[in-house]
Amino acid sequence: MRIARYVADGGDPGFGIVELAADAGDHPDTIAAINGDPLAGPVKYTGERHSLDDVRLVSPVIPRSKVVAIGKNYAAHAAEFHSTVPSEPLVFLKPNTSVIGPGEPIVYPPETADLHFEGELAIVIGRICRRVPADRAAEVIFGYTIANDVTCRDLQAKDRQWSRAKGYDSFCPLGPWISTHLSVAEAGNLRLTTTLNGEPRQESDTSLMVYPIPRLIEFITSFTTLLPGDVILTGTPHGVGPMLPGDSVTVSIDGLGSLTNPVVAED
């Protein structure tokens, strides 16, 4: 199942179930409206249906408390910055105010001269959880989506910590929807690509993560409680690089879709 948040006819954002032509269903490339928030409990179809071409997709999840991100979780990415893989997952936080949706602009702030894209697989948490053993990680996962961990590379080096460099408003694009049908094993074996203005920049596979999904959930919940709607960014592969106002960046993951955002200068 693919769960999206969307805006239709200038109304308020709502949730819906996406059906694609590839599904060979009765309503290809449409979104069927549902009542309520699927992360909060059971929902029902309203009977309202829209063509995907007629709606605007927004971030499929509104993190209620936090975005937990992982650094240096691909050996080749660590190597491209002349670094080593940490002995345990390297965790940092991004504020929930950094989240935007598909098509929304990544805002290039005046404080940086080196803004980078970082395509990633994202996990959406579905229940309150603490100290989850790796073999039970699947029980707390609601689904998966795509993320771009936007980073001011120069501020990251200057500050020697990552809060400002990765925490600006618009620095966490998520979308286009949450896919709930994948198993943990399937999510850990997906092709990931990032393109800048249509040119390939990152080409890798989630199977190359140093710390796989169950280990990440086990480690994160060893020190903090995760809430429904919290998001885990699982790290980026090699090939990250700069982007400028006027550029367009797309992160694609097999089975999950594509997330595209333009880059604009801050007014």
Rank of each mutant, 00 (worst) to 15 (best):
T236Y: 09
G47K: 11
V140E: 12
Q202L: 09
S252D: 03
V140M: 06
G175S: 13
N189K: 10
I220R: 01
V68H: 00
T145G: 12
D169F: 08
T193S: 14
A33D: 07
V132I: 14
L196T: 11
R127M: 11
G71S: 00
P38N: 13
S170D: 01
V67H: 03
R2D: 11
F142S: 01
I3G: 00
S163H: 14
T46M: 03
S179W: 12
R164S: 09
G229T: 08
V249Q: 08
A22N: 08
V107D: 01
D9H: 15
D254Q: 12
T180W: 04
D267P: 15
P60I: 07
D54Y: 01
P38Q: 11
S83A: 10
A138S: 13
I62Q: 15
P262M: 05
Y74L: 07
W177S: 09
D230V: 05
S59W: 00
D9Y: 11
I17P: 07
G36V: 09
G25W: 08
G126I: 02
R2L: 09
V263P: 01
C172T: 13
G36Q: 12
D267V: 13
G36M: 05
T193L: 02
V99K: 06
T236A: 05
I123T: 10
I220V: 15
I31D: 01
T236D: 00
E203F: 08
D9R: 14
N35C: 13
A79L: 07
E104L: 06
N96W: 02
D29V: 07
F81C: 09
V231T: 03
S163N: 13
V150Q: 00
G143P: 10
H181Y: 02
R64H: 12
F92W: 11
D29P: 11
F223E: 11
P173H: 12
V61C: 12
I70M: 00
P109E: 12
L90M: 14
T193W: 09
Y211F: 15
L233G: 03
P89D: 00
Y211S: 06
E104H: 06
I106T: 03
Q156A: 14
E186M: 03
P214E: 04
I220E: 07
V43N: 10
T112S: 11
P176N: 02
R131G: 04
L192M: 06
E19M: 04
S83D: 14
M209V: 11
L182A: 09
A40N: 13
S87C: 06
D154E: 08
I70S: 02
Y108Q: 02
S170G: 02
L90P: 00
R2Y: 07
C172E: 05
W177K: 02
G255D: 09
D154Q: 06
L233W: 02
L155T: 01
D169Y: 06
G188I: 04
K44V: 14
K44N: 13
A265K: 15
I232E: 04
D154S: 02
H50E: 05
V249N: 01
P28M: 07
P42L: 01
D12Q: 15
A21Y: 11
T224G: 02
H77M: 07
H82K: 15
P200I: 10
D205H: 15
P237D: 09
E218P: 07
A78Y: 08
E48I: 00
L52H: 10
